[in-house]
Amino acid sequence: EKIKSDFFELLSNHHLDSQSRWSKVKDKVESDPRYKAVDSSSMREDLFKQYIEKIAKNLDSE
């Protein structure tokens, strides 16, 4: 859970929106230790998708 929250924090530093693509974001964040803390690339992508869904819901509710 800490790894997930750290990863979300990392993503939040990059001002993403619901149109952001993992392939582009990954290049910007892959040197960060919070990125490396997530064991697998599929898990990183899953967390990215969860984060994008979360910010999309937040935008819808505003």
Rank of each mutant, 00 (worst) to 15 (best):
V29A: 04
K4N: 05
I3R: 04
R44S: 04
N13G: 09
I55P: 06
S20D: 07
D27W: 12
E62H: 09
K4Y: 06
V38A: 04
E62A: 14
E45R: 07
E45V: 06
E53Q: 11
Q19N: 15
L59M: 13
L10G: 01
F48Q: 03
K26Y: 02
S20L: 04
A56N: 15
E30D: 14
S61Y: 14
S40T: 10
F48R: 03
H14R: 05
S23P: 10
N58D: 15
S23D: 15
K26C: 05
A56G: 15
D39V: 11
S61N: 07
I52K: 10
F7M: 01
K54N: 14
Q19G: 11
V29S: 02
H15A: 10
L59P: 13
F48V: 09
K4W: 02
H14I: 11
H15W: 05
L59K: 13
E62M: 09
V38D: 04
Y51S: 03
S18E: 15
N13Q: 15
L59F: 15
Y51I: 00
D6T: 02
D17R: 02
L16K: 02
R34S: 02
D46C: 11
A37D: 03
H15M: 08
S23G: 08
S42A: 14
R34V: 02
L59S: 14
I52V: 13
S42H: 10
K2A: 05
K26F: 03
S42M: 13
Q19A: 10
S42E: 14
R44M: 02
D6I: 01
K57N: 13
R44Y: 03
E9G: 04
S31Y: 06
S20C: 08
K54A: 10
D6M: 04
S61H: 09
K36P: 00
M43Y: 07
K28R: 09
H14A: 09
I52N: 04
H15I: 11
F48T: 03
F48N: 02
D27P: 15
H14F: 14
A37L: 04
K4I: 12
L47R: 00
L10W: 00
Y51N: 04
S61M: 10
K4H: 06
I3D: 05
D60Q: 10
F8I: 08
S20V: 05
F7L: 00
A56P: 11
D17M: 02
Y51C: 01
N58V: 10
D6K: 04
K57W: 06
S20I: 05
D46S: 12
P33C: 07
L16I: 15
V38F: 01
D27A: 15
K4G: 02
L59D: 11
Y51L: 01
D32R: 00
F7V: 00
R34H: 00
S42R: 12
S23F: 11
F7R: 00
H15C: 09
S23H: 07
E45W: 02
S20N: 04
S18F: 08
S42D: 12
S23Q: 07
S12A: 15
V29R: 00
Y35F: 15
M43D: 08
A56S: 14
K28A: 10
L11V: 01
I55F: 14
K4V: 06
P33V: 08
H15N: 14
S5A: 14
E62N: 09
K26P: 01
V25T: 06
A56H: 09
K36V: 10
I55L: 14
L11F: 01
R44C: 13
K57E: 14
R44P: 05
N13P: 04
S12Y: 04
S20Q: 05
V25E: 07
A37R: 06
N13C: 12
S31E: 10
Q50K: 09
D6Y: 02
K24F: 15
S42Y: 08
D27F: 11
K49D: 10
D6R: 03
H14Q: 12
K4D: 02
L11G: 01
P33E: 08
E45N: 04
L59I: 11
V25L: 13
E62P: 15
V29C: 10
F48A: 04
K57R: 11
Y51E: 02
E1T: 05
S23W: 11
S40K: 08
R34N: 02
D60M: 06
H15E: 11
F48M: 04
S5V: 08
A37M: 06
K49L: 07
K26V: 08
L47P: 00
F8S: 02
E53W: 07
K26W: 04
Y35P: 01
N13L: 12
E9A: 09
D39H: 09
R21Y: 07
S61D: 09
E53N: 10
K57A: 11
Q50T: 09
Q50W: 04
W22S: 01
S61T: 09
F8N: 03
K57T: 12
S42W: 08
S20R: 03
Q19R: 10
I52W: 09
S20G: 04
E9Q: 06
R34Q: 01
L10I: 03
Q19D: 13
S40L: 04
D6F: 00
S40P: 08
D46Q: 12
I3T: 08
Q19F: 11
E45Y: 08
I55C: 12
E30S: 14
E9Y: 03
R34C: 02
V25G: 03
F8C: 02
F8H: 05
S5G: 10
V25H: 05
